[in-house]
Design a protein around this nucleic acid. Structure first.
Length: 262
DNA sequence: ATGGTCGTTTCACGA
């Protein structure tokens, strides 16, 4: 079975690329983030004709997650228990955000995750990000004994080598000790980064900003991950980052990450 | 400190 995750940065504007990606890598399951579409807006006919089912949640604006599968799509769940919303004002109402969708596909429990960006360290979104990750960790502890994959855009670069220039991130989110500790907590609970062992070499970026020709100059970040529970990690026979998908015009700013399971 | 580029039921905002 072959699974993948991709921050597509608008599913509607890149549906042709999604269909090509599924075919090119013979994918059984594809988790998407930043779909920027409500479920009723999705162009599904092409996917259905290819034999895939789709589960999605989101708005037309900037968030949204989806799972595309041809090996079953069961027990779909939008959000996890305890997932916080974001309050625009202190004590204000919590806005529900479509940042997580889970489903069982081919016997694997897969979660497509779009971790909050955090914006600036002194922004309320930063604490929201940390809270969101803490609640996800609590939920994920209950799933660690099964074949579980936590995949998506984590908006954290866990190691200095995951950043093209740490000096440029001195005051930025994505690299702060608290964010890195939040990521490490999943590893402490037994989840495994199943991609890194299969991508030797110092440059393993999955994201390059649209500004300043960052891809052409290979100035990127590694922020997209597939974390597997122990039993799932034992099934991983290969993995790669599809850099070619990021090249040229009309690309998402993220590259897909593909994992092969035996 | 600033600005650069995408995508969105866009002339502003989030990434």
């Amino acid at each position: 079975m072959r699974i993948a995750t991709w921050n597509v940065n608008s599913l509607r504007s890149r549906i042709d690329r999604v269909e090509a990606l599924l075919a090119r890598h013979d994918l059984d399951v594809l988790a998407l983030q930043e779909t920027k579409a409500r479920e009723d807006q999705l162009p599904l006919m092409g996917l259905q004709s290819m034999g895939y089912e789709v589960a999605a949640a989101g708005t037309s604006q900037w968030n949204g997650v989806a799972i595309i599968s041809r090996v079953g799509l069961e027990d779909v769940q939008v959000g996890f228990a305890g997932m916080p919303g974001f309050a625009k004002e202190p004590e204000g109402p919590l806005a529900a955000e479509a940042r997580a969708i889970g489903a069982t596909c081919g016997g694997v429990r897969l979660w497509s995750l779009y971790v909050p960006n955090g914006r600036k360290v002194d922004d309320p979104h930063y604490l929201y990000k940390l809270e969101w990750l803490a609640r996800l960790r609590e939920a994920a502890q209950a799933w660690s004994g099964e074949d579980t994959a936590l995949v998506g855009d984590w908006n954290i670069a866990p190691l200095d080598e995951d950043v093209f220039d740490m000096a440029q991130f001195k005051t930025s989110t994505h690299v702060t000790p608290r964010e890195r500790a939040a990521f490490q907590a999943f590893l402490d609970d037994g989840y495994v980064d199943v991609v890194r062992p299969h991508t030797p070499g110092p440059e393993v970026y999955t994201y390059w900003d649209y500004y300043r020709q960052r891809f052409e100059r290979n100035r990127g970040l590694r922020i997209d991950f597939v974390l597997g529970s122990a039993s799932l990690a034992a099934r991983v026979s290969g993995a790669f980052i599809d850099r070619d998908e990021r090249a040229g015009t009309g690309a998402s700013d993220h590259a897909p990450v593909v994992v092969e399971l035996s």
